[in-house]
């Protein structure tokens, strides 16, 4: 069972010069390691590229109607 279980983390390699630049960049920030910073940046990039479930104009109009009915929009 244990062997079948997917590993939680994988190792990737980045150029040493880039690693050093990131090390410098995170000094004085709340990122405690290059790995946590790189994970954060990559997650942002991946999420940015992921497609949102389409929210049609019709859906948005329905939402606006409810907001108007409740007095949140004029």
């Amino acid at each position: 069972m244990g062997e079948e279980k997917e590993e939680k983390f994988k190792t990737i390699t980045i150029p040493a010069s880039l690693f050093k630049k990131i090390e410098e960049r995170i000094k004085g920030t709340e990122f405690t390691s290059v790995a946590s910073y790189v994970t954060y940046v990559l997650r942002e990039v991946v999420e940015e590229e992921e497609e949102e479930v389409p929210f049609s104009e019709e859906d948005e109009e329905k939402v606006k109607e409810r907001l108007k009915a409740l007095g949140y929009l004029d």
Binding site: E60, V63, K64, R66, L67, L70, Y72, L73
Partner: peptide, 16 residues
């Protein structure tokens, strides 16, 4: 419930 909004609704509201 008249004060209840879902995130999809607050996001439209903030945009509007």
């Amino acid at each position: 419930s008249r004060f209840y909004l879902r995130p999809v609704e607050t996001r439209v509201l903030f945009k509007e």
